[in-house]
Write a protein that binds this DNA or RNA. Sequence first.
DNA 1: CAGACGATGCACT
DNA 2: GTGCATCGTCTGG
Length: 171
Amino acid sequence: MGMYIVYRSPGGIMSARIVEVEAYIGRDDPACHAAAGPTRRNRVMFGPPGFSYIYFIYGMYHCLNFVTEAEGFPAAVLLRAAEPCDGLETMLSNSGKRQVEGLLGGPGKFCRAFGLTRAQNGLDLTGDQLFLEDRGEARPTVARSPRVGVTRAARRQWRFQVAGPPKASGG
DNA sequence: CAGACGATGCACT
DNA sequence: GTGCATCGTCTGG
């Protein structure tokens, strides 16, 4: 949280400050895509940490995750929202919008703005194409709550949001 | 191969 | 608050 996601896309470089994520942890988490075991879709979750997991949902949206935990233990962090930083024009163009409001305010909207699809599934996040960047900010205060769109295991408060007002101009 | 449904977003009431 | 677009993925036969 408070770190930046950077993507050197064919259409230009983009970056955004991460302000909302959710955790999906292991076979025991009924909301985790990997709960039923490895499939073609969730395969990358069972691999080593530090890779992108991007899936297609509702016939029209993509969602970006960061694979975490040791190889063989499927877990990932879903990126739910961010604040635009670099490459605003590219994001707007990708989204077909002219307004910044809500541009990255949801996992589907984020991927649309960044131009991420399954073509970027399984990327090495320690590479130079799609990666996280620590820009030296102080750790933001984080609030936790139940995950969105998850009915099972609602007791697990694994949604995390930066508290307080937006830092930059975006949002 | 057919059928069900989803870690969403948007229009509308 | 409710309805629904739209299709990949998974399940079961």
